[in-house]
């Protein structure tokens, strides 16, 4: 990181995005009481179920977020699939 970038607020992790990330976690936690352990367990089980139908899914690569929507909250999961696998059907 260049001196000037640093001096004038360069690419350091900005505190606002940090605040937002922390709040995302806290608000979900306040509402759903979902502990990190439960979240991890959920990912493992999601991977288990999906692996029955799709090329092997790695629980460690799943990203799960609970977001607030207008009427409902919703769960958003990013689940990368392994590409270039032979036909599973």
């Amino acid at each position: 990181m260049g001196f000037f970038e640093n001096l004038f607020g360069g690419r350091r992790d900005r505190s606002a995005s940090l605040a937002k990330q922390r709040l995302m976690m806290v608000l979900v936690d306040d509402r759903y009481k979902l502990t990190p352990e439960m979240l991890q367990q959920m990912k493992v089980e999601i991977a288990e179920v999906l692996s029955r139908y799709l090329p092997a899914v790695d629980a460690g690569q799943i990203e799960v977020k609970i977001l607030r929507g207008e009427a409902n909250d919703y769960l958003k999961a990013d689940i990368p699939l392994k590409r270039g696998q032979p036909d599973v059907g």
Binding site: G9, S15, A16, K20, L23, M24, R68, G69
Partner: peptide
């Protein structure tokens, strides 16, 4: 400067 939550951030979090 990215050092304060924007209105968009707050709206995304609170969704009202």
């Amino acid at each position: 400067r990215g050092e304060m939550l924007s209105v968009e951030d707050v709206l995304e979090l609170l969704a009202i």
